[in-house]
Computed example of a mutant assay.
Amino acid sequence: MGLLRDEDKAYLKKEFEKSLKNDVRLILFSSEDEHCIYCKETRQLLEEVSGLSDKILLEVHDIKSEDAKTMGVEHTPTIVITDSESRLGSRIKFIGIPSGYEFTTLIKDIMFVSSGELEVSPETKEALKGVNSKLLIEVYVTPSCPYCPKAVLVAHQFAMISEKIEGVMIESLEFPSLADRWSVMGVPHTVIRNLDKGNVVQFVGAYPETHVINFVKDADEGKNVDMR
């Protein structure tokens, strides 16, 4: 039995026909290990989605492969979304299955990457050009959180714009050890790590991009901010 309903497939197929312009690569890193509870379901989900358009190209790699090392992937399942030329590299990631409300995030990301048409303002795009440090934006979510997709989409779009930024969705129920590292209690919980300077900015809630860009600037400047 498929994970997507027939009516949902029909709707998405029409939306993809209208929105997709260039090829999009969905790169799944998976494992046959029994500890990867959602690897099978994640692969099935991506197979169903990629089957709705010839512009969505699905690749599946083992977590122990060289590709995983190259893309900095350590957990299964992990999805990397990139363009056909890999200009985006591995900057846009999902760690965990994009189920529940996060399925919408997956679909919108595909459309963003394919069309190049984002939802952030020109002012935000200009501000992101000034980022100098290497930043990792991790957004901890749960499938039942209706506000989480907004936070993830902001992080992912920032990563699409700036080569200095990596945006990662982390399903906190699926990866409690990662969530516990930052004492995640409520979601969406965003952690911005400056990989060059070592400082951390974190906050809880789905802030608009105009607020998030200020948090990014704080992280870039080496500030430690805790708004939990």
Results as ranks from 00 to 15, higher is better:
Ile27Cys: 01
Leu12Tyr: 13
Val113Glu: 14
Cys36His: 06
Thr124Val: 15
Lys129Trp: 08
Phe112Trp: 14
Asp62Cys: 07
Gly89Pro: 04
Tyr38Gln: 11
His211Gly: 12
Asp67Trp: 02
Glu209Ile: 05
Ile79Leu: 11
Lys55His: 12
Met185Asp: 10
Val152Asn: 04
Tyr38Trp: 15
Lys64Gly: 08
Glu15Lys: 15
Lys125His: 10
Arg5Trp: 07
Lys108Ser: 05
Ile97Asn: 13
Arg228Glu: 15
Asn22Arg: 04
Lys64Tyr: 15
His75Cys: 05
Leu173Asp: 09
Ser172Thr: 03
Gly222Leu: 15
Thr78Ala: 02
Val73Phe: 05
Ile137Ser: 06
Val139Asn: 06
Glu48Asn: 04
Val113Leu: 10
Glu66Phe: 07
Leu20Cys: 13
Thr105Asp: 04
Leu4Val: 03
Glu32Lys: 15
Asp196Val: 08
Glu41Gln: 15
Ala10Thr: 11
Glu34Thr: 11
Leu3Tyr: 11
Asp8Tyr: 02
Phe203Pro: 07
Gly198Pro: 11
Arg181Tyr: 04
Gly198Trp: 12
Lys197Pro: 12
Cys145Thr: 01
Lys13Thr: 07
Leu28His: 13
Asp6Phe: 13
Val187Ile: 01
Ile63Tyr: 06
Val141Cys: 00
Asp67Cys: 00
Phe215Ile: 02
Thr190Tyr: 05
Asn214Glu: 14
Gly198Arg: 10
Ile110Gln: 15
Arg43Tyr: 10
Pro208Met: 04
Lys64Trp: 10
Asp226Ile: 08
Leu28Gly: 05
